[in-house]
Design a binder for these strands. Sequence first.
DNA 1: GTTAAAAATTGATATAGGTTAAGTAATTGG
DNA 2: CCAATTACTTAACCTATATCAATTTTTAAC
Lengths: 243, 243
Amino acid sequence: MSNIAIHYTVSCANCGLQKICFANGLHDSDLGQLDELVDRKPSLLKGDMLFRAGEKFSSLFAIRAGAIKVFSYDQNNTEVIHGFYLPGDIVGMDSLAYTDYQFNAVALDVTTVCEIPYGQLTELANQVPNLHLQIFNLMSQEIVNNRFYTSLLTQKTADQRLAHFILMMSSKYKSRGYLHTKFRLNILHRDVANYLNLTPETVSRILAKFNKENIVSWKKKEISILDEARLRDFAGEDAVSCD
Amino acid sequence: MSNIAIHYTVSCANCGLQKICFANGLHDSDLGQLDELVDRKPSLLKGDMLFRAGEKFSSLFAIRAGAIKVFSYDQNNTEVIHGFYLPGDIVGMDSLAYTDYQFNAVALDVTTVCEIPYGQLTELANQVPNLHLQIFNLMSQEIVNNRFYTSLLTQKTADQRLAHFILMMSSKYKSRGYLHTKFRLNILHRDVANYLNLTPETVSRILAKFNKENIVSWKKKEISILDEARLRDFAGEDAVSCD
DNA sequence: GTTAAAAATTGATATAGGTTAAGTAATTGG
DNA sequence: CCAATTACTTAACCTATATCAATTTTTAAC
């Protein structure tokens, strides 16, 4: 893996993720103000913690590049994975009602984020009504996404869950303008299993099947969707849309 | 079941649920304004829909009495239950990023709600910064509750899930100042099973066990917690706190 | 590059909770 | 109040996926 720590300095106005980040729905004049309070942090390396549960809550983070895993520990100290966040996603909204972060967030890859100090954000929002609405919208979408995820866990078989997961990631890349049939996803199969409430063995067996039938190949962090139609058949009837 | 449709007219300032509703964190002067935009609707009867998925989103609802079930349908037209909402809870925040309600909400009992038109709420919030924060907080709590619920489904056995559910409901009643060891809960066992991703048969078997061992009795919508300590043992180590 | 550690694979076996079925109890609507 | 419907219970059996175990492959660290 490359270790180059690029320090992004592009402004919100020029950011390719503008449409999906907070900046969505703001006027040019307001964008400049948001831009000023955003702290563009140097890259996180794989395994670096963005924040830990119990640390003082201070900021939201917009992901610019890389991937973040959000998780907690259950009483047996096993990880409970709540989500994987990709460029354009916002991390930390779950903790905004609390004095401390409620979950852990770790970089799965070289990752760059914009840090948005919450205090300053709410101050700015008092002058820019659209920003309040934008935050409401993102949080409401997060709730709906969680509900969709619950349905996935409770209503779908192992095959369907994994097929959905792959389509979901593909759809995220597509909506960000990247190739969606072939992409790198630096997530352990073990973590995918955990997220889908399966064991690594089950994920491995299903991937072996998908591979044998030339539907999906997922080897060494590289996913290729070879037969999207059949993958959708496996996923079941619900459309995979995502933000 | 009683059919008396009480039309509540008490103001926010005098509402016993003040501490847990939007009114929390507002000054007396602001409370009056919130009070004016709240529409106190006549009671819903059991089975009445508060709103349906696909209807135009217009309002949030604060529950004053009764119980609301929020659910969607999966591709087989089976209900997916996302939550049960009791007095002091707010329903509808999930849909606020959308033009339509994203879920269905039905009364499980005679239920009274305060309707809070979203447009007017955001207008008022522009004058009352605390109100924005209050809405942020409620939404963030909803996200954290959903994550806790996911952990329950993925990490706990059937016994633990049901024990947790009973303790959760008990805790809600307790925090609202009601007796928490003996209360009426007008939720079908079938719906509890659905919510906990179990079958009615499994719930029935576990309740039979709890009953035989004098831990909990749940007959005809009446729950009695007979041995809270042992029920907590069944629930496992995580504390049941709830809002 | 080499090696140790971690992750993924594959097969055999086990089990929690689902499914089926057949009853009993509770609720609802006339 | 009575009949019909809907909800709940209990028991026997089954299955999807977990668990256990033994390799193989990949990754990370020197």
